[in-house]
Computed example of a mutant assay.
Amino acid sequence: MITRDHAAFLAFARGVPADFGPATARAAFLVAPDGFRLAEQSAADNRYMGQTIAFDAARASSQHRELQRALAQVLPTLCFAGDPATPDAVFPNNVFATAAGRYLIGRMRHPVRQREADRADIRGFFGGVLDYAEIDLSTQEHPCELTGALVIDRARGLGFAGLSERCDEVGAKLMHDALGLRATLLFDLAPGEYHTNVVLAVLAGRAALICPGGFADAGVVAAIAELYAPHALQLAPGEHAAFAGNAIALSDEAVWMSARAAQSLTAASQAALAAAGFAVRAVELDAIEVGGGSLRCCVGEIF
């Protein structure tokens, strides 16, 4: 099923068992922020990006290294070298994604990001070292920025595709088919939002962080909240602005987000995460966040 009908999606998804696959990744990969700077093309439709003066490449590199060290305590975490010609490559989950036995290469909207799809080392790792089958969506014309645009409940095989300039309906269907998902809900993001994973996180298949202001249709918010009740947290505007929705579970017991995001959590949100069985793990990433994304954007998952 792939649909815009959130009521039909909810009716179907309620009956889906959590047997699609592992709820969390078995490893993670990052791309170092080498040459990290403002990418003007990306800034055209990413309101979260800072100004040129806010970019500090040395601080970004140091924080990124700390991120790798922190994640490596939980699961194997690889880091590929960055490239000054691709300043947004620090957010690799938009370009490369995996499922059991295969990897996807996304179609990026902006030419500066399309270059990332040509990286022979990352392709070689997935195709040559892991022997994953390749599904290359980068050469077709429809934008589909992978797990930036598509938030996935890996336990149940459900997708949540927010449509914007970074992902259209055809692109969403291509990702749905490539990942073999059971059902994908299509919806419009609110004006000014560019990626679904900034406004929605599904945590280990049993909880959701939702930023209501990021959705064009409140009915979609209600459907997602109902699906993940009682562990559906609707975040306040301040939490949304601090990237609290850009979080990820890499194990059953912890949710990872930036220090800024963690500091923004209200007492109610902290209590709700604890009730869902998640400890909050945070890493300082302010120098990365000026690039328009936060912790979840930095993490590519290997399933």
Results as ranks from 00 to 15, higher is better:
Ala276Asp: 02
Pro76Leu: 14
Ile210Glu: 04
Ala39Arg: 01
Glu66Trp: 01
Ile224Tyr: 05
Gln140Ala: 14
His6Arg: 05
Gly214Tyr: 05
Phe278Gly: 09
Glu116Ser: 05
Glu226His: 04
Gly21Tyr: 02
Gln140Thr: 15
Ala43Leu: 12
Glu289Val: 03
Ala267Lys: 13
Val151Trp: 01
Ala225His: 07
Val198Gly: 02
Met108Tyr: 08
Leu209Gly: 04
Phe9Cys: 03
Gly238Ala: 08
Met175Gly: 02
Gly157Glu: 06
Ile105Trp: 04
His6Val: 05
Leu203Thr: 10
Ala57Ile: 14
Asp121Trp: 09
Ala232Glu: 02
Val112Leu: 07
Asn94Gln: 12
Ala218His: 11
Ser269Arg: 11
Cys79His: 01
Ile224Gly: 05
Val16Gly: 02
Leu181Ser: 01
Glu116Trp: 02
Ile53Asp: 14
Ala267Gly: 12
Phe215Arg: 14
His231Asn: 13
Ala208His: 01
Asp286Gln: 08
Asp88Gly: 02
Asn46Tyr: 08
Ser42Phe: 03
Ala218Ile: 01
Ala32Tyr: 11
Leu10Trp: 03
Ser294Arg: 04
Asp177Leu: 06
Asp45Lys: 09
Leu71Asp: 07
Glu169Cys: 11
Phe96Pro: 11
Gln263Leu: 10
Gly148Asp: 09
Phe20Lys: 12
Leu189His: 03
Val255Pro: 11
Ala54Trp: 00
Asp88Trp: 06
Gly293Asn: 02
Leu181Lys: 01
Cys298His: 02
Thr77Pro: 13
Arg182Gly: 12
Pro111Asn: 00
Gly101Arg: 07
Gly159Met: 02
Glu253Gln: 13
Pro92Thr: 15
Tyr132Ala: 04
Ala7Glu: 15
Phe278Trp: 10
Leu38Tyr: 11
Asp252Gly: 15
Lys173Ala: 13
Pro84Phe: 00
Phe278Asp: 07
Val280Gly: 09
Gly214Lys: 08
Thr139Gln: 14
Val221Ser: 06
Pro17Met: 01
Phe187Ile: 08
Val199Asp: 07
Leu146His: 07
Gly50Leu: 06
Tyr228Phe: 15
Ala43Tyr: 12
Arg65Trp: 04
Ser62Gln: 14
Gly300Pro: 03
Pro87Cys: 09
Ile302Asp: 08
Gly219Arg: 04
Gly171Lys: 06
Thr184His: 03
Ala249Leu: 03
Val290Phe: 00
Phe55Met: 12
Arg154Ile: 09
Glu193Ile: 08
Pro84Ser: 00
Val90Glu: 00
Glu145Gln: 12
Ala242Thr: 06
Ala23Ile: 00
Ala97Tyr: 00
His110Thr: 10
Asp136Arg: 05
Leu250Asp: 07
Ala60Asp: 09
Ser138Lys: 05
Arg47Cys: 14
Leu233Met: 14
Leu227Val: 10
Arg260Pro: 07
Glu301Ala: 05
Gln73Asp: 13
Ala99Tyr: 06
Gly106Ser: 07
Ser138Ile: 04
Ala161Phe: 04
Ile152Thr: 11
Asp153Ser: 04
Met1Leu: 08
Gln41His: 07
Gly21Asp: 07
Ala274Ser: 11
Cys144Trp: 00
Gln73Cys: 15
Leu179Glu: 01
Ala262Gln: 05
Ala271Glu: 13
Pro191His: 13
Lys173Phe: 10
Val198Thr: 13
Arg4Asp: 10
Val220Ser: 02
Ala247Val: 01
Ala7Thr: 10
Glu193Tyr: 15
Leu250Gly: 10
Ala161Cys: 10
Arg115Gly: 00
Glu134Ala: 15
Leu67Ala: 10
Glu116Ala: 02
Leu203Asp: 10
